[in-house]
């Protein structure tokens, strides 16, 4: 089963200065600077490291709550 993502990284591109702090703090390599722009993939585990260390208030992590479904029977 593929790992479900637990959070979504909302990046404010007007505030982001591409200082390259958050991609190196991310434990799952979810953030990357591609072509002068910060992008996030779907491996977020909602650890909030990027949000805490961002000096420019550009990142906001939104937790995703998955509803647990148990198979019938």
């Amino acid at each position: 089963m593929a790992r479900q993502r637990k959070g979504e990284v909302a990046i404010n591109h007007n505030y982001c200065k591409r200082c390259n702090i958050c991609p190196q703090f991310c434990p799952t390599k979810n953030l990357e600077i591609v072509g002068g722009k910060l992008v996030s993939y779907d491996r977020c585990i909602a650890c909030f490291a990027c949000e805490r260390y961002c000096p420019d208030l550009a990142i906001e992590v939104v937790k995703i709550y998955h509803v647990e479904t148990t198979p019938a029977g």
Partner: peptide, 21 residues
Amino acid sequence: LKEENLPTPWCPGCGNGQILK
């Protein structure tokens, strides 16, 4: 914070933003 004054004028990677926060 006054959000209309953001982003901060500091250089990329500057620690001042973290202290402000």
